[in-house]
Structures are given as structure tokens and as C-alpha cells.
Nucleic acid binder design. Structure first.
Lengths: 246, 246
DNA sequence: AGATTAAAGTGTTTATTTGACACAATAAAA
DNA sequence: TTTTATTGTGTCAAATAAACACTTTAATCT
């Protein structure tokens, strides 16, 4: 048995909404369950000697191969009926593999995390219950197990709020990126278009970008300059917050 | 025994930072432990058939006598060593009362809530572990048990952030209040002074206040007008957020 | 090779918001 | 009745945000 349930804290689970960005699309990492074939957010349990943040890091390391993922808890989901329709339990029954069915069937409150990762670096990897892990575009996402649609929606709301007073992008973009790419990221998260010139002026005013002397050639038309984040200032901005909203 | 520990979810506790406002001071509701005499935030456990929000409401109803308290979860505290120095356990040993000591001595992750209540209406009431419940001014608060200082600090930070894009006051002030009182509340939470005229202009622009024809007499000097919140707009603002910061 | 195409670079003007600031009115207290 | 200190109120200047158009460029097409 893969799960040594005795190592875990009772009653507590966690679910992660992992956001990535690729080809101007906001993506979410989802699992496909082995037996029910339903989709689910990656999640896990908390070991007896780790914090919930460490647990989420551990889980995401397993699901993406990445360390040092940007990770934030945003809400606890605790509707008493939420666990009842967990298909993982059904899956366990069908697999006949698990001696500790009751443990999985217990009531869990789940701590919701959202994570921002570099799409190109993550290697989606299924877990014990799933046959596949893959990125889906936001619009492609239909019904998820249990309350995972709700969790996703709350995560998205939180991200949208966050973006107004925190820098975002370092964890979602490759090291070097163009201003139009950054703008698309913002537009995608916010769900609206922004003025190109005002966006650039605003971004530059935050003083978290280094403009590089190179441009990104290869597209048809005028090549855009490349930028990188000025990590020192970026971190300062993370702590102190930015101003205003879009 | 008061605590039927079997009714509670394992591993999960909650702690509440209850804010009140009185005489231009921000107050926090604290308990004084029976045996160790240390101070603690009011807290409790989650019953098997309730959400964590319902649990927090229940606990606060017991500690204040109030229903329908404004309540918000803001963070989960889960350092594995946090439970180790819980004086409640020591208290239980000394009281000799509890047959289920192990339950209390287990590791808990704690869900932090903050609450905003009308100081004049709350009746501080101690719990099983405490001899006294009382309001303390923020500056009067010294060392609290376990990680409760941290929880308090995070709650305060959250409140300060929240105040920039959410209306605040309905839950902290009496029904009718004056503009100077409202301003003092903001100044106290933010920890800085604000320009009287700009504050008023800004507040009125949110369109969440009704100016009443009455003034509040009794003080020496010119009596200020009374206001009440326009609940309909207040709730809209809670949902949609305000703009900018101070 | 030259023409065409569409995205990217860039600055100014206007409107809106914020910040600073002073004097008159009032009720209580002296 | 005088004094006192708080409240009510408006304007002007500065900063910020919003609207907006033309030139430059690399790739593609012919």
C-alpha cells in the first residue's frame, strides 16, 4: 500500500489549485481519477511532523517535480457533507487494494492552496488515485469531484484580488519574457483587456523589471524587448504590496 | 466532564481574534487560564457535523453571548511544535478532572478567525479552562499561550489589509455613530492619523452612510452629526470591494 | 528584392483623484 | 457672557490614471 495512513493527521486534507500560463492561456493542473475518470485537483494529507505548507510543497513536488513553488493557503473548506461523494473512496473499493478504507472515508476539512508555477518546467505526474495529470485551460474545466469546482473558483477570486496589490508573474513566466507576454498574463487573470501603453508605464513604475538589451525574434513583425524580474525589488513589492488596482 | 471530546473532529482546533472598539481603543477579547493564569485567545474545536465557521460562531456565542458575529477565517496555523506548550494540558493535569488527557495533548492545527463585534453588546464569558474573559487594549497585551501572539498579529495584519478594500465599522460601532468616531476607528486600526476632511469626503463617496438629521450632544463643543450605515450599499461594497488604500 | 503586414515602441493631453490646508459655527464650561 | 475646543465645510495644487496615433521593424508574400 502506498498510503501509510498512520503517518497522517486525522481529519485534515489539502487541495492545490496549481496555475500555469502558456500560449496566453491560464491553465490549471488536474488529475483524472483511475476508476471514476472524474477530474480532481491535486491534493494530499498532512504528515504528523510537517506544517500544512510543507505538506502542500511535498504534494506539489510529487505532482510537478518542482521545488520552491510559490504557494499560498487561501481558505479552509469544511462543509460536513463535502467528503461524502468522494470518488476516491469508490475507487479504493473497486481497486480492492486498500486495507484502510475507513480512513479515507472519514470526514476531512480541506485546506485550499493556490500555486503559481512555470508551465514549461512542471512535469504533470499522477498520484495513487489518478491515471493521468494534465493541464487544462480554465474554460475547458467542467465538473470536478466533491467541492473542487468551488475551491477552484475561490482560488481564482483570490488570485484576482491578489494581483491588484501584489506583483505576479515571477512564478508563472519563464526567466525572460516580453512586455506583451506579461500583459497577456494580467489580462488572462483579470479577464479583461488593458491598454498597452498604460500597462507598460504602470509596470515599469513598480520598478520590479529589468529591461534586457535583447529582443525576442522569431515572430512575424517587430520583435519585442525581453525583460526579467528584478528579484530584489520584486520581493520587496511582495512584502510591501503595490498600490491601486486595474 | 464538560468536553465530550468524542464529538469533535480530531487534529483541528480554531482560535478567534475578537476585535472590539471602545473609547477610541481597539480591544481584543482574551481569556485568563484557570491554573497557569496565562492569557489566551478564545478557541474551540469543530464538531463532527458543523463547518468551521459554524464552530467559530458557536464558540463566540458562548464567549460573548452574541449571534451573527462578523467572522472571517484568515489563516491556518500548523507548526508541528505549536501544541507542545499548551498550558491547557497542564491545567487539565492539575485539575485532575479530565479522563481524556491524550485528546487535548494531541497535535492540532488551528484555524484562525477574526471577528468584529459591538463592544457594548458583548458579555465576555470564560470557558472551561479559563477563570476570566476580558477585553484588553491592543497595547496592554503581553505574552499569550502557544502561538497566540502570532495569531493575533496575523489577524491584525489581515484586518489592516482588509480595511483598504472593504467597508469596516458596521460590526464594530453602535447603530448610530459620528464621523469622528468612525475616523478614530480607522485611525486605530491603521495605526496612523488621517485628515479629517479627506476622510469624510472619501467615506461619503463610498455611498455606504446615511447622514441622520440628529447630532450627538453631550460633549463640550460643537455636536457632531450622527450617521448610520446604509446596509444595502454596505453589503454591496463588502462583495465588490472598495478602491485604493490610505 | 521589394512590397505588404501586423505587432511593438513610444509621449502627450485630458480627466480624475488625492492631498494639503483655514475659517466659521456651535455647545459646554468657566 | 466669554472662553474653549471640536465639528462642519470648500478650494486649489499636485499626482495619478485614462485616452489616444504614429513610427519602426522583422517576417512573409509575391
Amino acid at each position: 500500500m502506498v498510503f501509510e495512513t498512520g503517518n497522517f493527521l486525522e481529519s485534515v486534507s489539502l487541495d492545490c489549485v496549481v496555475f500555469g500560463f502558456h500560449q496566453n492561456q491560464l491553465k490549471v493542473l488536474l488529475l483524472k481519477m483511475k476508476y471514476s475518470h472524474e477530474r480532481a485537483l491535486p491534493g494530499g494529507f498532512v504528515m504528523k511532523n510537517e506544517t500544512v505548507e510543507q505538506a502542500a510543497s511535498r504534494v506539489l513536488k510529487e505532482r510537478t517535480g518542482l521545488d520552491n513553488i510559490f504557494l499560498k493557503q487561501f481558505m479552509v473548506f469544511s462543509d460536513p457533507s463535502r467528503s461524502k461523494m468522494n470518488p476516491a473512496v469508490k475507487d479504493l473499493v473497486e481497486s480492492g487494494a486498500n486495507p484502510n478504507l475507513e480512513w479515507f472515508a472519514q470526514r476531512f476539512i480541506s485546506i485550499g492552496f493556490y500555486a503559481l508555477v512555470d508551465f514549461t518546467k512542471a512535469v504533470p505526474t499522477p498520484d495513487y488515485f489518478s491515471e493521468k495529470a494534465e493541464w487544462l485551460n480554465l474554460e475547458e474545466i467542467n465538473s470536478l469531484i466533491i467541492d473542487h469546482n468551488l475551491i477552484l473558483q475561490k482560488a481564482l477570486n483570490t488570485l484576482r484580488l491578489q494581483i491588484s496589490y501584489q506583483p505576479i508573474g515571477y512564478n508563472l513566466l519563464p526567466e525572460k519574457f516580453t512586455m506583451p507576454e506579461l500583459q497577456k498574463l494580467y489580462e488572462t487573470i483579470l479577464g479583461k483587456t488593458l491598454d498597452r501603453r498604460n500597462f507598460q508605464r504602470r509596470m515599469l513604475s513598480f520598478d520590479i523589471l529589468n529591461k534586457l538589451p535583447e529582443t525576442k525574434k522569431g515572430g512575424a513583425h517587430k520583435p519585442p524587448y525581453l525583460y526579467e524580474f528584478n528579484l530584489e525589488n520584486y520581493k520587496k513589492a511582495l512584502e510591501n504590496g503595490l498600490t491601486g488596482g486595474w
